[in-house]
Computed example of a mutant assay.
Amino acid sequence: MKSMKWPSSAVLCVMGMLAVITSCTKSNSSSSSVPPGQQKFNMYLTDGPVNYQAVNIDIQSISVLVAPDSCNADTTGSQWNWNHPTCYQWDSLNITPGVYNILNFQNGIDTLFSATNIPKGKILKIRITLGDNNSIVADSTTFKLDLLWGNTFTINVDECQQVDPGSLALWVDFDAGHSIIEVLHQHFALWPHIRLFTRANSGSVQGTLLPAAADPFVSVISGQDTLIALPGRHGNWEVRGIKSSTVDVTFHATAGAYHDTTISNVNIKPGSSVDLGTVTLH
Rank of each mutant, 00 (worst) to 15 (best):
G223A: 01
F197L: 07
V239P: 12
V205H: 09
V249W: 00
S222D: 15
G241C: 05
Q206M: 13
I221E: 08
L210S: 06
D248I: 12
V205L: 10
G235V: 15
L196H: 03
G223I: 02
V249P: 07
K243T: 12
S204V: 11
P231Y: 11
G223E: 01
Q224K: 14
R199S: 08
P216S: 02
V247H: 04
R240C: 08
I228Y: 02
P231M: 05
Q206F: 05
F197H: 13
D248R: 04
H234K: 13
L196V: 03
N201V: 06
V220C: 04
L230N: 13
T246V: 15
G203H: 06
T226E: 10
L210N: 13
F217L: 01
Q206R: 14
L210G: 00
V239F: 04
W237E: 01
A229C: 09
V220S: 02
R195P: 00
A229T: 11
T226L: 03
L196T: 07
V249S: 03
A214E: 07
T208N: 04
L230C: 08
P216L: 03
R199H: 12
G203V: 10
A213Y: 09
K243C: 10
F217R: 00
I242P: 02
G223S: 03
I242T: 02
R199C: 09
R195Y: 05
V218C: 02
K243W: 08
G232V: 05
H234I: 10
D225C: 06
L210I: 05
Q224H: 11
A213Q: 13
G207E: 10
D248G: 13
L227G: 08
G203T: 06
G203S: 07
L227R: 14
G232A: 10
L210M: 11
V220L: 01
S244G: 07
G207M: 09
T246I: 12
V205A: 08
T208E: 00
S219C: 08
W237N: 00
S244W: 01
K243P: 00
P231R: 07
V247L: 06
A200Y: 06
V239L: 06
E238F: 10
I194P: 03
I194A: 06
R240V: 03
I221V: 15
R195D: 10
S219D: 14
P231N: 08
V239Y: 06
A212S: 15
N236T: 11
S244Q: 08
P231L: 04
P211H: 14
Q224Y: 11
G241K: 03
I228C: 02
V249H: 00
V239C: 09
A200G: 03
T208G: 00
I194L: 14
R199Q: 14
G235W: 15
